[in-house]
Design a protein around this nucleic acid. Structure first.
Length: 608
RNA sequence: GCCGGUGUAGCUCAGCUGGUAGAGCAGCUGACUUGUAAUCAGCAGGUCGUCCGUUCGAGUCGGAUCACCGGCUCCA
């Protein structure tokens, strides 16, 4: 247990987590848990959600309880309420919660038969609890009671409500019962709690700080991209944003060529019949845009695979070509629901760093491992932490059970062999095959899918793909769809937030700004900058009639990695004065030394 | 798409209970020629998201709509 923290629950020798009063004196205490432990925090937040629910029931007796778990940061509780909650209601609920905490009501664990529990919740009109109860297998269930409030809950909980030191309700939003769109929409209240006001204050400040890293804000401040009402979900890239994208893509191309990929490009608009054949018309229609040209129906591509397949089929393929890795920076359009658009992270038009690998079954594992390694190369380059998920067959899918079985196992084996931890998402795969996804986090800790590896036995079947084998006969290739960055737009968003806009030197849109102290220093400033420019360094001059301090401030706000100050001393000594972003004055350098220094830094792609 | 919120100058925001808009920063012009995060002064800039309605009169009230923000669902 962390020092200075109160014990709130107990981890037993059987690795069970139990209430403090139930574990004590049993001789089975392995460890006391506190707010400092992840599990302890979960209990703390979960208990706070019960306190909130109690307060809501007091203020709105007609509210029906749904569920109220702890989440990564804080907790929520879902209610079915006739009236809609406003921000003002939140402070009323907070007030009531304060009263409950003040009263220091004990959390009591009750174990009752399922029938008894049904009776209790039936009397209270808690229809959602009854629904949950009906699905429980156990004959005996646990309830937790604090005062007049009672909830179906596995527990454990804090000893009493008074344990909660500081809390805040953060927002109200809608949420479907059990996450299903067809179910009624409930009202969800989010909140967080801590042991002290101090910690709560620090948390809220951290959130405020994180918001300053928001790529939508930085994108505007740094003049990288913009979004307009005229094109919801269709981002516009500005000159500086394009420098970042193109620099990233230079490396992307270099790395892909090194790993045996060839680049192709396919059209954005293709005839509807192609999409009917691929299965997109059947499975993905609601996300697609359509148009008519000369009386023929066309679709704007939501994915690159059907177009890529036409390239594969453009001539007879030999086994000697396999695995054939065809990469495409494909621009796709998808009609996403209006409510989900989010800066560059979730858009309706984006560039996938796609590739399709056509191969023999024996190549599957090594190709998957190759892609995982390539993804790791890019993520490690920026010190990104990433999470891997394996998604299996969804309800709406094509292909045989056997195909799915083989494909899923291949992905699993590759993951096992590489030895990276991963999570399994049952039923979350693409309609044509199972997949491995790579998730990165934004400034507020929200996870975004970037890289993906999708094995596909279905598409080769549908398009009757074949290659001539060693035996001279036709064989069916296996296909792998994959992205590494995912969407260039989303990846840029993640990059901006990860570095808080201060992109590493090699990616920075402007790498060096030259600041003459006075107008008379301009000629030498130009001379110095031209030398850098000729060496491929991205240079700008600040020729404004402003003080040096003001020019420095401006460049620092633009997050330019290096500032060169040129005054009398520099002109005289044929030197430059170097100031590094965030670090300040590095002193005087000769041009040669400085050039060498930054060229090395660019070459090494240092991510700071 | 659904739930809740927001929408005033390029940006950040003010504008009380309805009487046709204001600040700081940015921009432009001028003066200052400046040594490591903001020199001073002046000027210019808005059909208050859009449409409809209530009213003698609407940024302010009502409705619709669009976009954005936070969630749900979905996904790269």
């Amino acid at each position: 247990m962390e020092q200075g923290r109160k014990a709130i629950a107990i981890l037993t020798v059987e690795d069970q987590i139990v209430d403090l009063n139930l574990g004590e004196g049993t001789g089975k205490v392995k460890k006391y848990l506190s707010f400092g432990d992840e599990k302890g925090r979960e209990i703390y937040w979960h208990s706070t959600s019960h306190i909130m629910a109690q307060a809501v029931k007091r203020l709105f007796p007609e509210a029906r309880l749904a569920i109220g778990p702890a989440i990564e940061e804080g907790f929520y509780y879902d209610f079915d309420l006739p009236e809609t909650l406003s921000e003002e209601d939140l402070s009323k609920i907070e007030e009531e919660m304060r009263r409950i905490i003040q009263a220091d009501i004990p959390f009591e664990r009750l174990e009752v038969s399922k029938e008894e529990a049904e009776k209790i919740f039936g009397e209270r009109g808690e229809t959602y609890k009854l629904e949950i109860l009906r699905e429980l297998e156990e004959g005996v269930v646990s309830l937790y009671r604090q005062g007049e409030f009672i909830d179906l809950c596995r527990g454990p909980h804090l000893p009493s409500t008074g344990y909660v030191g500081a809390f805040k309700l953060l927002s109200v939003s809608g949420a479907y019962w059990r996450g299903k769109e067809s179910n009624p929409m409930l009202q969800r209240i989010y909140g967080i709690s801590f042991e002290s006001e101090e910690e709560l204050k620090r948390y809220l400040e951290r959130i405020e700080e994180a918001k300053k890293r928001d790529h939508r804000r930085l994108g505007k401040e740094l003049d990288l991209f913009s979004l307009h009402e005229e094109g919801p979900g269709f981002p516009f890239f500005h000159p500086k944003g394009m420098v970042v994208v193109n620099t990233l893509l230079d490396l992307w191309r270099k790395e892909h060529m090194k790993r045996g990929y060839q680049e192709i490009r396919t059209p954005i608009i293709l005839e509807k019949s192609l999409w009917e054949r691929s299965g997109h018309w059947e499975h993905y229609r609601e996300n697609m845009y359509f148009t008519k040209i000369d009386e023929r129906e066309f679709a704007i591509k939501p994915m690159n695979c059907p177009g890529g397949i036409l390239v594969f089929q453009s001539r007879l393929r030999s086994y000697r070509e396999l695995p054939l890795r065809l990469a495409e920076l494909g621009v796709v359009h998808r009609h996403e629901l209006s409510g989900v658009l989010h800066g560059l992270m979730r858009v309706r038009c984006f560039t996938q760093d796609d590739a399709h690998i056509y191969m023999e079954p024996k190549h599957i594992k090594s190709e998957i491992i190759g892609v995982i390694d390539l993804a790791g190369f890019f993520y490690r380059l920026f010190n990104f932490e990433y999470e891997i998920e394996l998604s299996t067959r969804p309800e709406k899918s094509l292909g045989s059970d056997e195909m799915w079985e083989i494909a899923t196992r291949a992905l699993q084996e590759a993951l096992e062999e590489i030895g990276l931890p991963y999570r399994v998402n049952e039923g979350e795969g693409a309609f044509y095959g199972p997949k491995i996804d790579f998730h990165l986090r934004d400034c507020l800790g929200r996870r975004w899918q970037c890289g993906t590896i999708q094995l596909d036995f279905a598409m080769p079947e549908k398009f009757d793909l074949s290659y001539i084998g060693e035996d001279g006969a036709k064989h069916r290739p296996v296909m792998l769809h994959r992205t590494v960055l995912g969407s260039i737009e989303r990846f840029l968003g993640i990059l901006i937030e990860h570095f808080a806009g201060a992109l590493p030197l090699w990616l920075a849109p402007v790498q060096v700004v030259i600041l003459p102290v006075a107008e008379r220093h301009m000629p030498y400033a130009r001379e110095v900058g031209d030398i850098l420019l000729q060496k491929g360094i991205r240079v700008e001059w600040n020729e404004e009639k402003a003080t040096l301090g003001a020019k420095i401030r401006k460049a620092e706000l633009e997050k330019v990695p290096y500032l060169l100050i040129i005054g009398d001393r520099e002109v005289e000594g044929k030197t430059i004065s170097v100031r590094k972003r965030k670090e300040g004055d590095l002193g005087s350098f000769g041009m040669g030394t400085f050039l060498e220094k930054i060229q090395k830094e660019i070459e090494e792609k240092v991510a700071v």
